[in-house]
Design a protein around this nucleic acid. Structure first.
Length: 401
RNA sequence: GGGCGGGUACCGAAGUGGUCAAACGGGGCUGACUGUAGAUCAGCAGGCGUACGCCUACAGGGGUUCGAAUCCUCUCCCGCCCA
């Protein structure tokens, strides 16, 4: 009996970083309570990305164990932008943009979660008519000094960088969500620690039992060190095509393979360990480990067949220097002599003739597989000719017009 | 209200009268090599002209000067501190 509960608890907390207050949560789980577990996501960009799936996976685990996921669509906080880890205020989003993003989030959410039993709520449900009165009351429940303890605020203060007043409200609004949905537990990345803890205090001062909090590691982005984030341009969107996801994942620096295996694949523990150790002692080619990881990740969103196809395509194009399966067409005149630079610009492969000339000079341009060596010599591409720039940009030139 | 510091290319940041289309870093791009779009190394980087050149650009306007990102002046915007 106790064993079962303990196993249950271990499963819930496996791979997590912090759990506050640990013992209290353990007790509730042992009593067999079904907990309301909150996780919030801001629709600040059109796509959910791999970084979001780390907490989503944990949420799914809790869901499978009979707890109730409560997903908050942060349609109000999205307009502020979470200041966490940021050293600058960011522009506030327009409500229309947030609304559009929120709409696309809903289906992306269920790429991992089982829709049955998930409670999806929007912040605007309770903030719509919150009013000045509500704001003031909420603001009155914390002190400025408390808010400024937050790491990113403190460091900005220290460096004399600006902090928008609205940014201070971010943790308050997020915290109030916990009151609104009567959360028992809240999940979040480690960068959310402050916000999660503050929610406990707000709940307490509202006469509600404070939620437990559980944090998960942050997924590093494609650059290998900064947190994955759309605005940093280092994210893999969950609804990106399989080939794109695969290619992006293959561009990860080697040291990231381990964390990705652990955080965003379903590969068995034993296999993950084998790959990690193999890379460490040199018995496994890091490229092979990375490829296996990439295939596993793509499988989660597109299924194993599509993942295998993406891998094959990638090898064909990048290792075998073949042509990709689909090549965009450009409406460029063919069959007559013309300036290479002009063609490159028209085909959208260069932004200016100067850039085009540079690309040719550097040897980055091929026409039907033959390198174009001198931009001063005009070319006469036959209809359907393939123009390539660099290792991965291809365009098929349109029929003669 | 007072004091101070700023606004430079995609971002960050040098430059404070000519040699500045503007250092350096990040990001981007190309090549070599390879294990891939990874690592490393090398290179490119406003536009137009096949060179010499011209045009546009250092928040905006006006001015000084043979010559201004750099000096003066007005305007706009931003930050910090003190009230």
């Amino acid at each position: 009996m106790d064993d079962g509960a303990d196993r249950h608890l271990r499963e819930l907390l496996d791979g997590t970083v912090d759990c506050v207050p640990g013992e209290q949560l353990a007790e509730r789980v042992r009593r067999g309570e079904r907990l309301r577990i909150k996780w919030g996501i801001d629709p600040s960009a059109p796509d959910i990305h791999l970084g979001h799936t780390v907490p989503m996976r944990l949420l799914r685990r809790w869901q499978r164990r009979g707890h109730r996921p409560v997903v908050i669509i942060g349609d109000v906080t999205a307009r502020i932008g979470d200041p966490s880890g940021r050293s600058a205020t960011r522009p506030q989003l327009e409500p229309e943009a947030v609304e559009a993003n929120a709409a696309t989030y809903l289906d992306q959410l269920f790429c991992l979660l089982d829709p049955a039993g998930v409670e999806v709520r929007r912040q605007s449900e309770w903030f719509q008519d919150f009013g000045l009165e509500g704001m003031l009351r909420l603001a009155g429940s914390v002190t400025v000094a408390q808010l400024l303890q937050r790491d990113d605020f403190a460091s900005r203060m220290g460096r004399q960088h600006p902090i928008g007043l609205h940014e201070l409200f971010y943790p308050l609004l997020q915290g109030y969500d916990s009151i609104a949905v009567a959360a028992d537990v809240e999940l979040g990345g480690t960068d959310q620690l402050f916000n999660l803890l503050l929610a406990r205090e707000l709940q307490a001062s509202a006469g509600q039992p404070p939620q437990a909090i559980v944090t998960v590691p942050l997924l590093e982005g494609l650059d290998g060190h900064r947190k994955m984030s759309k605005s940093l341009g280092n994210a893999v969107a969950v609804r990106a095509p399989a080939t794109e996801q695969y290619g992006q994942l293959m561009s990860l620096p080697d040291p990231s393979v381990g964390p990705y295996l652990r955080l965003v694949t379903d590969l068995p523990e034993a296999r993950q360990t084998a790959l990690r150790e193999g890379m460490a002692d040199g018995s496994v080619n890091p490229r092979a480990a990375k490829a296996e990881m990439a295939r596993a990740v793509v499988s989660v969103f597109h299924g194993p067949e599509a993942a295998a196809r993406a891998a094959a395509e990638f090898d064909r194009v990048h290792r075998g220097h073949g042509l990709p399966a689909t090549i965009p067409e450009a409406p460029v005149l063919t069959g007559m002599e013309q300036d290479v630079r002009q063609v490159l610009v028209l085909a959208g492969l260069a932004r200016s003739r100067g850039e085009a000339a540079r690309l040719v000079t550097q040897g980055g341009v091929t026409l039907d597989g033959a390198r174009v060596t001198d931009w001063r010599i005009p070319i006469a591409p036959p209809p359907g000719a393939v123009l390539q720039v660099g290792p991965r940009r291809f365009v098929r030139l349109g029929r003669a017009g």
